[in-house]
Computed example of a mutant assay.
Amino acid sequence: MGPVLILYYSRHGATEQLARAIAVGVEAAGATARIRTVPPVSSDPDAEQPDDPTTGPPYAILDDLTECSALALGSPTRFGNMAAPLKHFLDRTSGLWLNGALINKPACVFTSTSSMHGGQESTLQSMMIPLLHHGMIIAGLPYSEPALHTTTTGGTPYGVSHVTLNQNRALSEEEKQLCHAQGKRLAQLAGAINTMTTEKGKAV
């Protein structure tokens, strides 16, 4: 089974914290987490993509999507939508769509906002749309997760989220629990699909 790709854009570090907490859940399920980010976009159409950051994960390439067995996609909210750098990267995946490279791979989404009602759910839904076009299987968070009933910060059935209240970027305990649960669920789904595909191939 290939790695679980955790792909995100983060401006001030809050979304990155979610990504790393999801990775904990992925690896707790026995899978390998591959964390990648995307570069900022420039208003100059001829600007070259910057080199990989000196700290933190490298920038994603299309091969990361091809090689992964599952995807966790994250972005801060920009007016109720995903941030432009992540959209810019997804807009480059038409070749993968033509080849059906992502069909039947499980995926989840995550986001962060600086206010309680900052458009989290619409942002999560906006990130699902291109994944559905790719034929991916969306994995939300079921209400069997106790932290969904007790959180007073982030957390939605559409995917994990974080609220940066009063510039406090630390994840709440409920947010951490939901991230771990989301990562674990995603890895388990990837493993189950991989097993079914392998068994089907053997049967043929």
Rank of each mutant, 00 (worst) to 15 (best):
A139D: 04
L71M: 06
D64L: 03
H134A: 12
H117I: 08
E48N: 05
R78N: 11
P85I: 11
L141H: 00
D52L: 15
G135C: 04
A83M: 09
G119V: 03
T153P: 00
H134I: 10
N168G: 07
I61V: 10
D51W: 08
T66V: 14
H133A: 07
P146Y: 00
L73R: 02
M116V: 11
H133F: 03
L102P: 09
S126R: 04
I103K: 15
P53T: 10
T156G: 02
P53I: 05
T123M: 06
S144R: 14
P85D: 00
L131F: 02
H162Q: 13
L132W: 14
E145R: 10
S122L: 11
P85N: 05
N166H: 04
L124K: 00
Y59D: 07
S115P: 07
G140M: 02
N166C: 02
A147L: 12
G74Y: 08
T77R: 00
E67A: 14
D91I: 09
P130Y: 07
R78Q: 05
L98T: 14
F110Q: 02
D44E: 14
R92P: 02
S115I: 10
P53V: 07
D46I: 08
P85A: 12
P45F: 00
A147I: 08
D46V: 14
C68M: 06
L86G: 00
C68Y: 00
L71P: 03
L102K: 10
D52Y: 14
T111M: 11
M127F: 08
S122I: 14
A107T: 06
P146F: 02
I129G: 00
A107C: 09
T153I: 04
A84K: 12
F89L: 10
M127H: 04
P76Q: 09
L62S: 13
T123P: 04
S126D: 05
R78W: 07
P85Y: 06
M82V: 14
G140R: 00
P57M: 09
E121Q: 07
L86P: 01
T113S: 14
M82G: 05
A107Y: 00
T54H: 11
T150I: 09
G155R: 06
F79L: 13
Y143W: 12
T77D: 06
M136T: 05
S114A: 13
P53H: 03
L96M: 12
